[in-house]
Design a binder for these strands. Structure first.
Lengths: 195, 195
DNA sequence: GGAGTAGCTTAGTCACGGTTAAGTATTCTA
DNA sequence: TAGAATACTTAACCGTGACTAAGCTACTCC
């Protein structure tokens, strides 16, 4: 049994940890967290099962880290945008940003709102808080862009609807990337503008 | 230990089977299929665990039936609409129908596209076929309503995006029912019209 | 060149939960 | 009123899969 361990000082540029996270994301997206075993993840990474525990406390904490990262990433991007342009002008670039993310990270999108229930309570809490902050920025941006008074709860529901629209990428089939991006942007703008 | 079995000849009007299906749907929606035990379902129904096996072959087949029912129900409603009005005029009523469904069945919506992976392969196949037929009707309706030639794959992606928009009801918070219905209809129409 | 450490291995252990077995009470039917 | 059918009960089984233990190898850094 010839092993080529060590012949790969860091094959890609991702740390082992990130590599596992990425591999696990694809597996979770395809089969669901509960249906993927620790051995599955190991095998897909070219190592065997329990090796995972040298990088993560548990299967659940791996999931937790994955989900928290996504939420943090989206939130930080939204904050950056709002820092660069005024709140009232932030909506379009945020739509563009979110569409890019959804198109380029279909697996993460799927896992994110399918397997959150499988994460630890504390991680769920953290993810929900981050999401909530993210939604707040969108809501504030929509409100800031309108002169008339809007019902905040209605805007919130509308923002969630737009997320639903954009996050449909896992079902979008094999459309050319730029065609999909342009389609989703157009639809998202039209939908939120109709409120 | 006093049992009131039999003092309830058919408490509601649902058969035991339907009652279990409904209870399980709520539990699955809240915790996810994999996190709900057979005992949980039994307890919530006032019976104990294995009683379930007098009504279903397995936990998985219960899920399968639940998912297939949803898909069948949506498809049959779409077919009814198309039978009543012309294909080109079917879109608005279909949006209204789908919105009503999504608003009134949040649990089912959640389970439907979160726990499909946990169903038997055969049930997954059936659900996907039904969904596909449902999407086809929408796509045909959109195409029929336009005089210019549309890219079918693009329309398909757009329809999925509208589903994502409408199916956001599990995240919509506590908005008045009619306000939510009207919001989602407006946004859906605007989104699909923008294509 | 030896020690630390990162990263892995295989061989278990152990709890959880779906499922089966076997038996009981109630209602329905001939 | 037998006895079939329905709907349940509790107790037990047992496969699966997360996780632990203990030990090996090969780099890196003084």
């Amino acid at each position: 049994m010839i092993e080529l361990r060590g012949s790969r000082p860091n094959a890609g540029r991702l740390s082992r940890r990130d590599e596992l996270l990425s591999i696990a994301a694809d597996l979770f997206a395809e089969h669901g967290f509960a249906r993927v075993t620790v051995d599955d993840i190991g095998n897909a990474a070219g190592v065997s099962g329990p090796a995972l525990y040298h990088h993560f406390d548990s299967k659940e904490s791996l999931l937790g880290e994955m989900l928290v990262r996504i939420s943090e990433s989206l939130l930080s991007k939204a904050i950056t945008i709002v820092d660069e342009v005024s709140l009232a002008k932030a909506l379009d670039p945020m739509i563009a940003m979110h569409v890019d993310f959804a198109v380029d990270n279909r697996s993460l999108i799927t896992v994110h709102f399918r397997d959150l229930v499988h994460a630890r309570k504390a991680d769920q809490r953290r993810v929900k808080d981050l999401q909530s902050a993210y939604v707040d920025i969108w809501v504030d941006s929509v409100v800031a862009d309108h002169s008339e008074v809007l019902d905040a709860r209605e805007v919130r529901a509308a923002v969630h609807a737009v997320f639903g629209l954009i996050n449909s990428t896992p079902f979008s089939g094999r459309l050319r990337r730029d065609a999909l991006v342009s389609l989703l942007r157009t639809m998202a703008v039209a939908a939120i503008t109709a409120v």
